[in-house]
């Protein structure tokens, strides 16, 4: 990798970190509602993986998706606006934090049902195979997602049909508050692939270069028709499961120990040691990133809420007129207003 690309990795990780901290603040100020799952501590995985992929490789993620969105180049403005539930957000305020997407950038969305997106990733990979596009699908999930049926069904199917998917497990060692030893009979997640005769690797998820290298290798395999792979990235989250989590389950000492292994300062050390940056450069990057996130908040705050009249839009690909008037189901699309005996037209 050249110098600029390496510095970009650092910048992206820092952008995600600052963005997440700001999101937490906005959540506390009730600008953001619902579930907000932050990515602090795991940034090296999204950034390393996306750097390893082609821009037209498909991304399918779980709900902890801000990092992937930013790494894939969705603007901080659009992502923050989505968290605020605004028309200018990545899905116009329909999906929120857990369902960011930009299909023009082959980011097919964050999904909030644990394991639910794995078959979708397999299906996208089938489409790539059918159309011979040479694309691979990168599908990410947490350690807790490797126990559900769709995980096993998707691994089996993709291996059976040699579909080009990289299933990546961000093993942050907890599923909400349940430690991995209490939720999985096999705690080295990559070993689960052997049940399906699937290639598997384990990587240090806090080392952005190691992640990038592993994903490069697995993407090449998949592109060459050698089939899917399971990649386990060992990591830890610095915050609770979501903003609703007071994080009382994880031992303080464990959290402190992993904060010592923070991927961002670790990578700064690498850049400094290789004389690719000076401390001043790093400070400049930090100032730029802060400004970008401040701008995103201002943009989101100034953006309009989605218009009430758009409520029924997009439930179906083509408008179904009988459902768009007020949501009730009256006549076929071709039917005019329904005239009642008393002469009152209720619809149309």
């Amino acid at each position: 990798m050249d110098k600029d690309s390496l510095i970009l990795l650092y910048r992206q990780m820092l952008l995600i970190r600052v963005f997440e901290d700001k999101s937490a603040e906005m959540y506390a100020r009730a600008k953001i509602g619902g579930f907000l799952h932050l990515y602090n501590g795991q940034e090296a995985i999204a950034v390393g993986a996306v750097a390893a992929l082609r821009p037209d490789d498909d991304l399918v993620t779980h709900y902890r998706d801000h990092g992937y969105a930013l790494a894939r180049g969705l603007s901080a403005r659009a992502v923050m606006a989505e968290l605020f539930g605004r028309e200018t957000g990545t899905t116009g305020g329909r999906g929120g934090s857990m369902h960011l997407a930009d299909v023009s950038k082959h980011f097919w969305g964050g999904y909030a049902i644990v394991g639910g997106h794995l078959p979708l990733a397999a299906g996208l990979a089938y489409a790539a195979q059918h159309h011979q596009t040479g694309r691979v699908v990168f599908c990410v999930m947490g350690d807790g997602s490797t126990n559900i049926g769709t995980f096993h069904a998707a691994l089996n199917w993709t291996q059976l049909w040699r579909l080009p998917v990289i299933f990546t497990v961000e093993n942050n060692q907890y599923a909400m508050g349940t430690a991995i030893a209490n939720h999985s009979a096999v705690t080295e997640i990559y070993r689960k692939a052997c049940a399906y005769d699937m290639h598997a690797e384990q990587v240090d998820g806090n080392d952005v270069l190691a992640v990038r290298e592993a994903v490069c290798r697995l993407a090449t395999r998949a592109r060459n028709g050698e089939g899917p792979a399971l990649l386990e990235a060992i990591t830890f989250r610095h915050r609770g499961h979501s903003m609703a989590d007071s994080d009382v389950q994880r031992p303080k000492s464990q959290v402190a120990e992993w904060k010592e292994r923070d991927p961002i300062p670790a990578f700064a050390e690498v850049l400094l040691a290789r004389n690719l940056v000076t401390p001043n450069d790093l400070e400049q990057i930090a100032r730029d990133v802060e400004a970008e996130v401040e701008d995103a908040v201002a943009f989101a705050d100034a953006s309009p809420e989605p218009a009430r009249k758009t409520l029924y839009e997009g439930i179906y690909a083509e408008p179904v007129s009988n459902m768009q008037i007020d949501g009730s189901l009256i006549g076929p699309p071709t039917l005019g207003p329904v005239i009642f005996k008393n002469g009152v037209s209720k619809h149309g």
Partner: peptide
């Protein structure tokens, strides 16, 4: 689910 993903991809 695989059907959904394939449909998303143009199948």
């Amino acid at each position: 689910g695989v059907g959904i993903g394939a449909a998303m991809g143009g199948i």
